[in-house]
């Protein structure tokens, strides 16, 4: 009885927290949207002192950083999952999982420090950059940070594929790559997709490591595909400016609006990540 009411309480509490957070973000950023409308989202100038709050540079920066991260982490993470589940014998699984968990457990500020100490000088020297601070640096760091999420969840997705599929594939005489591409990956696809979506959400929300290497300058890369340019992400902007914005000022509600946009993106990704699982369960 006690346990049951405790569980009920916990569930209601978690739900209430989500609603309170989102409600707060909406109410805190409402003044901003009432004053400026939705045009800041597509405007490119962010100068709080001049009351200009354009979200576009940060949105573009966040998008590029996560695209780079996914482009690297998705193939690597998937490959790691395939190797660890399908190829290596059972007794290595513990070791691999341990490594992945350690990778996931390293605090993001430490990744940021490694980024400053190793990545920035390396980029600077090899690509002949001014300082190394760039979208590429942020993307590379994010790739390492979302790699464990992708690997772990993809492993689960592969393990969930029933053994009868593997047996059927072998008995049909399919070779290893056919088995992988025509049987295992399609079967595990919903899980892999939600892994990437969750990892995207995690990457979008990552702050401190990105803030230390991205350059924090509110400028859209020129040309638009110049990943070697320093830039700004939504998180790095909030991280840099939140402390100095006075509560209730238009800068404050503009930052809250940034937070709201980010939260909505991540929530959407989480919902998308859960959707296919439901459908599977129903079918």
């Amino acid at each position: 009885m006690l346990l049951r009411s405790w569980i009920t309480f916990s569930v209601i509490f978690s739900l209430a927290l989500v609603l309170i957070f989102v409600g707060f973000l909406v109410s805190a950023s409402l003044p901003f949207f009432l004053d400026y409308g939705l045009s800041p989202i597509v405007s490119s100038e962010w100068y709080p002192y001049e009351d200009l709050y354009g979200f576009l540079p940060a949105l573009v920066g966040s998008a590029w950083a996560i695209v780079i991260a996914l482009a690297i982490a998705l193939p690597c993470g998937l490959a790691a999952a395939i190797v660890s589940v399908e190829i290596l014998p059972q007794r290595y699984h513990g070791l691999i999982n341990l490594c992945i968990d350690i990778l996931a457990g390293i605090p993001s500020v430490v990744y940021g420090l490694l980024g400053i100490a190793l990545l920035l000088p390396w980029l600077k020297n090899n690509l002949d950059l001014l300082s190394g601070h760039s979208l590429l640096a942020a993307g590379l760091l994010l790739a390492v940070m979302i790699l464990p999420t992708i690997t772990r969840l993809s492993q689960d997705a592969l393990r969930d594929v029933d053994n009868s599929y593997r047996e059927a594939a072998s008995s049909l005489g399919l070779d290893w790559s056919q088995r992988l591409f025509s049987v295992l990956l399609p079967q595990a696809w919903p899980g892999i997709r939600s892994a990437s979506l969750l990892a995207t959400g995690r990457g979008l929300g990552e702050t401190i490591a990105v803030m230390l290497v991205v350059g924090s300058i509110d400028r859209i890369p020129e040309p638009w595909y110049n990943l070697l340019a320093p830039a700004q992400t939504i998180t790095s902007r909030i991280g840099r400016e939140m402390g100095e914005a006075s509560v209730g000022s238009s800068q404050w509600s503009a930052l809250m609006a940034c937070g709201l946009v980010l939260t909505l993106c991540v929530m959407l990704l989480s919902i998308l990540a859960h959707a296919p699982r439901k459908r599977l369960a129903r079918g």
Binding site: Y47, L130, G215, S216, I217, P230, R240
Partner: peptide, 13 residues
């Protein structure tokens, strides 16, 4: 005091 600096390549804290 609030002038823009369009030549800047980085922002630090």
């Amino acid at each position: 005091a609030k002038a823009r600096a369009p030549g800047a390549s980085l922002i630090s804290g």
